[in-house]
């Protein structure tokens, strides 16, 4: 390797310094840009979850889809005649700027026109919803049976009376009251296939802290596996079992009563295991 004469190095230095500055600048800009995007991404992730009692307007798509489509413009909030909806502040129970309502504060009045949905410019509120009774904003859950007055055997019934889908979304189910042993309990019972999640029941619950609460559906509902069939429903639909009549298998382990067996056989010897390893010990007794 030959050493360059100092004059050549000096001639080269301005452009090399320029290049270094340029590369530094690019690196700083790229780093800064990535940092900003990363910060935004992390913030979005951490705040993604909807708080348990924040409900979306009628017609809202699934939360992930909703957050991709909602531009946080507040047109639904402006369209709501009852000031039910509001936009989330920075630290509210819903992602910044998205519309939500809390049933206990102001429930949805279920306008037939659904003005909030009609105002949505992006389709975050699905225009396919035309009948407000088909809205699924959440699901009422009688979450505290220990304090619900009807479960205590009293006749409160307020949640049932105020329900806009009365006798479909909430019914009163008769049950014997074991405490008094002579009265009935009328238990408010929510039916998920009819509940719109409007929140009227939670709003009007007479307790200081409501015993019935409306939760976002993914939180309130379980789900059967997709392949699951209810035998009795299939039988009713097909006029017979889909898999044919079942062979009645004998119930092993309960031949004869334990009383007669213990009388005839006596105690089981521990050093004499049963003949079938892994099977049911016919001489077992509680």
């Amino acid at each position: 390797m030959e050493r360059r004469p100092p004059s050549e190095a000096a001639a080269e230095s301005p452009s090399s310094a320029q290049r270094r500055r340029f590369l530094n600048g690019i690196a700083a800009a790229a780093g800064g840009g990535c940092l900003l995007a990363l910060g935004a991404g992390l913030h979005a992730r951490s705040a993604q979850a909807l708080e348990a009692q924040s409900l979306r307007p009628p017609g809202a798509r699934s939360e992930a889809e909703f957050l991709a489509l909602c531009v946080r413009c507040g047109l639904c909030v402006r369209a709501c005649p009852y000031d039910t909806l509001r936009l989330a502040d920075l630290l509210d129970g819903a992602p910044t700027g998205t519309p939500f309502f809390k049933a206990r504060q102001v429930p949805c009045e279920m306008c037939e026109e659904i003005p909030c949905l009609k105002a949505c410019p992006t389709g975050a509120l699905d225009p396919a919803l035309t009948d407000i009774n088909q809205a699924r904003m959440g699901l009422a859950v009688l979450i505290d049976q220990e304090h619900c007055l009807n479960f205590l055997g009293l006749r409160c019934d307020v949640c049932y009376r105020v329900c806009p889908v009365i006798d479909k979304a909430i019914t009163l189910e008769h049950q014997h009251n074991p405490r008094s042993d002579r009265h009935a309990m009328l238990l408010p019972t929510v039916h998920a296939e009819a509940c719109t999640g409007c929140g009227k029941c939670e709003k009007s619950c007479v307790l200081p802290e409501p015993a019935i609460k409306v939760l976002p559906r993914p939180l309130a509902q379980g789900a059967l596996p997709a392949h699951y069939r209810k035998g009795w429903e299939e039988r009713a639909r097909n006029g017979g079992s889909l898999i044919g009549e079942q062979v009645e298998l004998p119930v092993r382990g309960f031949e004869g009563s334990t009383a007669t067996r213990s009388a005839t056989e006596g105690p089981v010897a521990p050093e004499a295991p049963s003949a079938a390893p892994g099977g049911i010990n016919p001489r077992w007794k509680p």
Partner: peptide, 27 residues
């Protein structure tokens, strides 16, 4: 650097595509 905003714009658009949500609107 003066180009930072171009990177921020690119990063923000990329983040939308990767996360499938309006990331930038959170902040």
């Amino acid at each position: 650097d003066a180009n930072t905003r171009q990177w921020a714009l690119g990063g923000m658009l990329l983040a939308s595509a990767l996360t499938g949500t309006l990331v930038w609107e959170w902040i």
